Amino acid sequence: MCLGIPGEIVELIPGQPELAKVEVAGVRRAINVGLVSQDGIRPGDWVLVHVGFAMSKIDEREAAATLELLRGLGQVYADELDALAESDIT
């Protein structure tokens, strides 16, 4: 199962305007932000991440509620975090 997981933008990658680093539950990975860059992405923003892409910009309250719901899924959520930890698009 693939989930959309909230991640916080922690860094914009210099020289690569389509990429940013996000943090999801302690895991930091580069993702493609091209689909939401028109919304003015910057560190501290929250996005919904799916298969290495930021699909939409969300607010912090929505991110917290979604993360709480996902944690309740147990192993499915753990598997998704493992997949994120193993990914690398840089």
Rank of each mutant, 00 (worst) to 15 (best):
G26M: 11
Q38V: 14
Q75M: 13
D59C: 13
G44T: 04
G74T: 05
R28C: 10
L3M: 13
V36Q: 06
N32E: 07
E11F: 04
R61T: 14
L73I: 03
V49R: 01
L3W: 01
G34S: 14
G26S: 09
I89R: 10
D45Q: 04
S56V: 08
R71M: 12
E86M: 09
N32I: 07
M55D: 10
I58N: 11
L48E: 11
P14F: 03
E68Y: 02
L70P: 00
G74C: 08
H50G: 03
Q16T: 09
G72T: 07
V36D: 08
D59F: 10
D39C: 12
K21E: 11
E11K: 13
S56C: 10
L19H: 05
A85N: 04
S56H: 08
G44W: 02
M55G: 05
A20M: 02
Q16L: 15
L35I: 13
S87A: 13
V49S: 10
A20Y: 00
G52R: 00
Y77C: 12
G15E: 08
R29M: 06
K57C: 07
D88S: 07
A65R: 14
L81H: 00
I31R: 01
L81W: 00
A63C: 08
L73R: 11
E11W: 00
L3R: 06
P14Y: 03
S56A: 15
T66F: 06
V51P: 00
V47I: 13
I5V: 15
R29V: 10
M55L: 14
D59N: 15
A20S: 03
V10T: 14
S37I: 14
L84P: 00
S56M: 14
P14S: 15
E23C: 12
L48G: 01
I31P: 01
P14T: 08
V76M: 11
D88P: 00
E86R: 12
D88R: 06
A83V: 09
E18Y: 11
F53V: 07
P43F: 04
E80L: 05
A25D: 13
A83K: 15
P14E: 15
G7E: 03
V27I: 15
E86K: 12
A54I: 04
C2T: 13
V51A: 07
E62A: 15
P6S: 08
P17G: 10
D88L: 02
L70D: 03
P43W: 01
D79P: 02
S37Y: 08
D39W: 10
R42N: 09
L12G: 06
A25V: 09
F53L: 14
V76R: 12
D82L: 15
G7D: 06
V33A: 09
